[in-house]
Design a protein around this nucleic acid. Structure first.
Lengths: 154, 154
DNA sequence: TATCTTTTAATAATGATTATAAAAACTTAA
DNA sequence: TTAAGTTTTTATAATCATTATTAAAAGATA
């Protein structure tokens, strides 16, 4: 954990930005909640627990800065808020999400599912792909199980 | 065009909604601008040209109603506004977009690119897919050409 | 016609995000 | 070290898309 913080610190310094206490607190919250997709408000509330004097605008600015530096990804599930995910180091940059229409849970898939599809798109539409975003909407296994056991009950 | 309007009218009636003049004006704007991805504000301004007495809230309510009835798709490019696309009749419901990071153009692909991918996801993650959304970010062929000819100049 | 429902317009309210301005913390160069 | 310049932060106001509210209008119904 400290290693990742250090590397992020170096990334900031490389662009002449400093890892201020507020920025460090924000990054720590992101590191400690890596599995979640936190909104700016979520991050703000969590940072406040440790550094109560921080302001919402600072959190917004920090998240924006981290997005620019590609330390985090700003993602949009269409629910009206932006969410911020720490980017996995070294990993390719995929955005594959499974959004459950029953319970709202969002799971993330780390595999590259689109290698072949990208080739088709690049060739057929002459579109030079830099990034992609793929979201499936459906019913997660948890909700499927829940439904199944409810049916057994009745 | 009139045919499609009639069919939309029937869809409304089937759910006990009426095709009021305001709603008709809104649908006409969508029919006449099918290629674009209009925001609520865009639709509002276009409808205003023909029916100046209409209010923004009515346009919002109409677009929401049409979305519920699955006459239009409400889509989100992450640019802070929702956009509304008339759904192609009979067509399967794919959302494949090519977003150009140079000029901002959004092209739409009508093919089903994900048949195989969906199978993998359904099996491996036990996720019952109902819909998906796939967006590629990159450089469109127009901007590629523009760049190429600029290089020739220099 | 009287009444009940649907729809509309106008406007206020909300919620996420961004802009602004003044203060604080750091840096740097004389 | 100190004065000046830069970066960052805080607090707050402003903005922008969207939703809620409320009263009036239009339509349907009995």
């Amino acid at each position: 954990m400290e290693n990742r913080l250090d590397r992020i610190k170096k990334q900031l310094h490389a662009q002449k930005y400093k890892l201020t206490p507020q920025r460090e607190a924000t990054v720590r919250v992101l590191l400690e909640n890596e599995a979640d997709h936190l909104s700016a408000e979520d991050v703000y509330l969590l940072v406040k627990e440790k550094a109560p004097e921080i302001g919402l605008a600072t959190v917004y600015r920090t998240l924006e800065l981290l997005t620019e530096l590609k330390v985090v990804d700003k993602i949009n599930f269409g629910d009206g808020v932006s969410r911020y995910d720490l980017r996995r180091e070294g990993a390719e940059h995929f955005h594959h999400h499974l959004v459950c229409i029953e319970c709202g849970a969002v799971d993330e898939i780390q595999e590259d599912l689109l290698e072949d599809v990208e080739k088709i798109v690049e060739e057929r539409w002459r579109f030079k792909i830099k990034d992609h975003r793929l979201t499936f909407h459906g019913i997660c296994h948890r909700c499927q199980d829940k439904k199944a056991s409810e049916q057994k009950q009745a």
